[in-house]
Write a protein that binds this DNA or RNA. Structure first.
Lengths: 107, 107
DNA sequence: AGTCTCTATCGATGTTTAGCAATATAGAAG
DNA sequence: CTTCTATATTGCTAAACATCGATAGAGACT
């Protein structure tokens, strides 16, 4: 299948931005980087975009847009609770993308 | 060391471009993609930039610039023979970059 | 010496990306 | 029901990137 190339490309594009890579790393080990949340579990539900915005030196619209890119690449999923939105890494998608990349570079 | 992040970032930036990813994949298995060369062995010496330019739908300056990006990221090395320039993947650098990325995403 | 080929550099251009302020929307909380 | 908070959307700007044509330099080949 030739679909591998385009999904690998999306993965690389999404992570080629330093801020997005940083955010993804943070939410992969959320308890190391974020305070406990009232209305959603850091691991089960994901990290509230508000906390990400507070931690990274960027405006809220910019963070929203970065999260949309990560979601479009399938690397994170989002869930709304009340008026908060939580982002959680999709670990199996990340693994699959890593495998595609590795296979493409036949390392 | 915090150097890992920036080298991972360079790796991702370099490969986030579809043409560069394509080229790297081609030169990783050069015998599958390029004709035999007179003045340099496809595997030992690398692929002549001329053949890459002929194969990909891009101008010669654009290809030169893409190769420079790959070289700056440490993913390829170049060698001049007569007035040809050959590019060869640096497999151990590629493997190291993959490992850094995997570790960063703790997959 | 003159010409041809290959690669690099320069300069210009169009496109994409990252970023923000302002605004809209929807829910929470008084 | 008004106000506050969280997120999304819009519209804009500045910077980065991809690309090309033109040109330069270095080597090969008459």
């Amino acid at each position: 299948m030739q679909m591998v190339r385009s999904s690998t490309h999306n993965f690389l594009k999404a992570l080629s931005n330093e801020k997005r890579l940083q955010i993804l790393e943070w939410i992969l080990t959320p308890r190391d980087h974020f305070p406990e949340q009232q209305d959603g579990d850091l691991v089960e539900d994901g990290v509230c975009i508000k906390f990400i915005t507070d931690k990274i030196a960027l405006s809220q619209p910019t963070v929203t847009s970065h999260m949309a890119v990560l979601a479009a690449a399938g690397l994170v999923t989002s869930k709304q609770i009340k008026n908060w939105v939580f982002y959680k890494p999709d670990r199996s998608a990340i693994q699959a993308a890593m495998k595609s990349l590795r296979d493409g570079l036949d390392v």
